[in-house]
């Protein structure tokens, strides 16, 4: 079980002409098995925060700890292993590989990192409600189904944290809510920590805690009185 803690986290982008101060001193603690939504308008720094926490962006100042380990101290292969085992990523663009079958896509994390815990693809597809699509091409599935394949892929290594960047951004409202319910279930039944980044308020409402970003800073951090129920 890995908690996440950021201390005075700053991020500056330098695109040659100007500097963008995208994160301005974020102090955030995410406890294990929490379901947290990070909301804010476009450009407020949500994706930047998620990428730094997930070890995809290592160029920041301040301190980020995952499971008590300072990310800065980790080498290239240790951080890759962290992404492989501790985190599962879910993106707005599902990033499925169209030349592979659904099942092969789910198995992709198994190619990297150390030894396999066995092939969980079928089981995971069942868990996300796609039991009969394993041999299909992802291109033949609906958007909601594709995102569920991506979630199954993110779960392949049995991670303790799912980092989800606008996972419903490409889905219609109803499908988006279905995906949300899946996250809720994973959180409740499997104690998976969910960090959900979104700009849609109704999506954030499903989380037990909502952190609001504005211009790279945390402006509010609320626990919802009524966490989601079935």
């Amino acid at each position: 079980m890995s908690g996440i803690e950021t201390t005075d986290l700053h991020k500056r982008y330098d695109d040659g002409t100007r500097q963008i101060h995208a994160l301005r001193g974020i102090d955030l603690v995410v406890d294990p098995a929490e379901f947290i939504a990070v909301v804010g308008t476009s450009g407020s720094g949500k994706t930047t925060l998620l990428n730094i926490v997930g070890g995809l962006d290592r160029d920041y100042s301040g301190r980020v700890e995952v499971g008590g380990r300072d990310l800065e101290q980790l080498g290239e292969s240790e951080i890759a292993d962290l992404r492989n085992r501790t985190f599962g990523f879910v993106f707005q663009q599902f990033h499925l590989l169209e030349h592979l079958t659904v099942e092969e896509n789910v198995r992709l994390p198994g190619f990297f990192g150390g030894d396999d815990a066995g092939d969980r693809a079928e089981q995971l597809l069942e868990q996300v409600g796609l039991e009969d699509t394993g041999a299909a091409s992802p291109a033949r599935l609906s958007g909601g189904q594709q995102q569920r394949v991506a979630i199954a892929r993110a779960l392949y290594r049995n991670p303790s944290v799912l980092l989800c960047d606008e996972p419903t951004g490409n889905l219609d409202r109803r499908t988006g809510l279905e995906v949300l319910e899946l996250f809720g279930r994973l959180n409740r039944e499997h104690d998976v920590t969910i960090v959900l980044v979104t700009h849609e308020e109704h999506i954030a409402d499903m989380a037990e805690r909502i952190v609001r970003l504005e211009a790279g800073g945390v402006v509010s951090d609320k626990r919802s009185d009524e966490p989601i129920r079935d």
Binding site: A80, R85, Q93, F112, R157
Partner: peptide, 16 residues
């Protein structure tokens, strides 16, 4: 590009 980014996200090192 996207695929390579994904590979990194699911645990590939630059050397891999």
């Amino acid at each position: 590009r996207g695929e390579i980014g994904l590979m990194r996200a699911i645990g590939a090192t630059p050397a891999e």
